[in-house]
Design a binder for these strands. Sequence first.
DNA 1: TTGAAAGCGCTACCAC
DNA 2: GTGGTAGCGCTTTCAA
Lengths: 333, 333
Amino acid sequence: MVQIPNTPTSADVARLAGVSRATVSYVLNNTRAVRISEPTRQRVHEAARELGYVPHAAARSLRAGHSRMVLISAPAIPVGPLYGTFLNELQWALGRLDYTVVQYGTVGLRGDEAARSWAELRPVAVLVPGPGLDPGGVALLKRSGARAVVTFGPERVEGAHALLMDHDAVGHCAGAHLYERGRRRIGVVIPEEPGLEVYSRPRLAGVRQALHGTCATVTELPLAYTERAAARLAGQWADSGLDAVFAYNDEYAMLLMRALQDEGVRIPEDVAVMGADDLMLGRLLRPRLSTVHIDLPSGRDLAELVDRAVRDPGGEPAVHAVLGAAVVRRESS
Amino acid sequence: MVQIPNTPTSADVARLAGVSRATVSYVLNNTRAVRISEPTRQRVHEAARELGYVPHAAARSLRAGHSRMVLISAPAIPVGPLYGTFLNELQWALGRLDYTVVQYGTVGLRGDEAARSWAELRPVAVLVPGPGLDPGGVALLKRSGARAVVTFGPERVEGAHALLMDHDAVGHCAGAHLYERGRRRIGVVIPEEPGLEVYSRPRLAGVRQALHGTCATVTELPLAYTERAAARLAGQWADSGLDAVFAYNDEYAMLLMRALQDEGVRIPEDVAVMGADDLMLGRLLRPRLSTVHIDLPSGRDLAELVDRAVRDPGGEPAVHAVLGAAVVRRESS
DNA sequence: TTGAAAGCGCTACCAC
DNA sequence: GTGGTAGCGCTTTCAA
């Protein structure tokens, strides 16, 4: 008969090694304040290995009164390679600082409930990309023991540290560049996919700002990420009289560019096209896609910010503008 | 003076409401077995709200002896939209079943250490995409209370349930299709990026298998995901005499296709090109990219598998082949 | 209908 | 050097 083995506890280890639970704890945690004889250490390690003992993180942090868990809110929309690598770097860096990093997705919960379920885990720090956290949520998390709450996205939130990713700058770059290239009737693609407004709105605003006080016009172009929608938009192009378009990002740019080319619109002669994100993708298009390169902060830097905030939770919430944006001109503009 | 507020506990709620901690627990958990008078309920809820009380998940599961945490190992490589949507659906479905879903990345730990750090969280179930878990790890997790361990990827692991994503089938489809189209000298791109072998090897094997017993030849084409590498490969194309290539996936296909076209190679006349994953990308290329559409299992199905396994941990580890693969012929083949 | 108390696994203080 | 033990926040049995 197969018996489901009970999870071994430190008491089991103690019993097997013939010592007390305290001693087990001292040995396995390398407690410096107390010296344990070498033979005893051996026996304890031996016993732990034999039983396959794994400490119980929840019990430990319950006892300690705090955890080293950093909770990162996992966005509901699939993320691109840019953010993906950033996240990996961040996780790695936090791991080096001995934090336990956990991504907690909150599909289907409204901001309030989300913050509550995060708080139940009593993380020492909470990182929230994009929106989805309001001042109330921040307060709740802090009251639940979070020593650092960091948002990174286009908006800051009262009470939280912010890595301000100023997507206005992305649009600004694009707008200024297109204007400089002699374009005056500029379209800006606004993805219809939900959840992208937080990025598309500031990017649009940036374009407007760059063109403010000039004779250039800005036209919003709602666009779903489908061939049909792109074809429809391209079909109406001649009527629009636009001579340039900032396509939100490289993927939408590819979609639109293809549709325009299929309509016989010449790029960049008739219409200049710009993307953003500087994906490999853009280099492979013909004409090569001009884009806005985005510099995310390094994961290491953010990890250090988190660590500092955790060690000194009294500090004022810092707001860092961290998004570098620079035009990469290729052939489409 | 600003005082760091202490996290309120159920004892605080009890005090404020003028009842015992037991009563608080009964009210907040809606314990059916015990009836609490309406006025008391009100007072408790009131107090909890006023204090911003959030239950302590760790303490709860420590007491309960088990958690409802499902741990999903977060892959180190950035994932595509395909897997991203699958993951979201899965999280949503598990959430509906009242599990707490957490993605735990293990950048930099070897399989053994990874399993250990997962086990420290005492999850009730562990889902591991791709490799990174050996039979020892599975045993460790089970001994630590995991009632279900599910791998999903191309290989199965002793002791764990498996969603067998048979990437051979992807290659097989591609190979058979290219053969059928009259191609006999077939190249297969093997990405040089680390971590992709688990997928590329089976896909290659599938191609070989499809062509076994025919006069067609298979040539491995190692390729890094850079323009330079692609240009180099394309430069040597004439010498190779290949008349078709299965490019691992749509992204590598785009990379290579572009390089070939820049070399003056005509597609599909001189060389047929196939991708895989059926991304939007492929539809936008010219010629439109033929691809292998991959059908991942629905997140709901996997969630149900997990739930069943959790409820009946005695059951034999099930192995499901779950990857549908079908050729989508467009213009590049 | 409500309260007292035990105990989940762990660590840290204090005795020996 | 090592062991006894209190107590982290919570649920649940038993008593009142």
